[in-house]
């Protein structure tokens, strides 16, 4: 359900861009998806493949999902570490005073279009 809601907005954003730039066909959409963004990439791609058929400008657009690693910062020892492996507890000093630096974003990086 969550993925479908995001797809609806992705499609709308792309259609608005296509109209502004007078693009007839988008052939590839490259997304940068953070490791802890909560998006299930398999399900997301399935949703996209279902949805794109309904939009002429998007129907031949393949989805290219690039994963961005999640990184957490420790406020106690000021080191950074990979979030997925260690979670909220700093592997260097054991502190829980940690903040996610990046990894929950979901960005449309670029689109490939027909000339």
């Amino acid at each position: 359900m969550h993925e479908m809601g995001i797809i609806l907005h992705l499609a709308k954003t792309l259609e608005e861009t296509a109209e502004q730039e007078q693009i007839k066909k988008i052939t590839r959409v490259t997304l940068e998806v953070g490791e802890v963004s909560g998006i299930l990439t398999d399900y997301f791609t399935d949703c996209w493949n279902y949805f794109r058929r309904k939009h002429p400008v998007l129907e031949s657009a393949e989805l290219d999902l690039q994963t961005l690693p999640a990184v957490t910062f420790c406020g106690n020892c000021e080191k950074t570490y990979p979030t997925v492996q260690y979670g909220r507890t700093c592997p260097y000093c054991g502190s829980g005073e940690t903040w996610l630096l990046k990894g929950n974003e979901c960005i449309i990086k670029e689109i490939e279009v027909e000339d």
Binding site: I6, L31, I108, E110, E112
Partner: peptide, 15 residues
């Protein structure tokens, strides 16, 4: 083929 850089959040249309 032409590449257009967007760098927009995925929910930009909603925002």
């Amino acid at each position: 083929m032409k590449i257009i850089e967007l760098k927009e959040t995925i929910t930009a249309s909603n925002d």
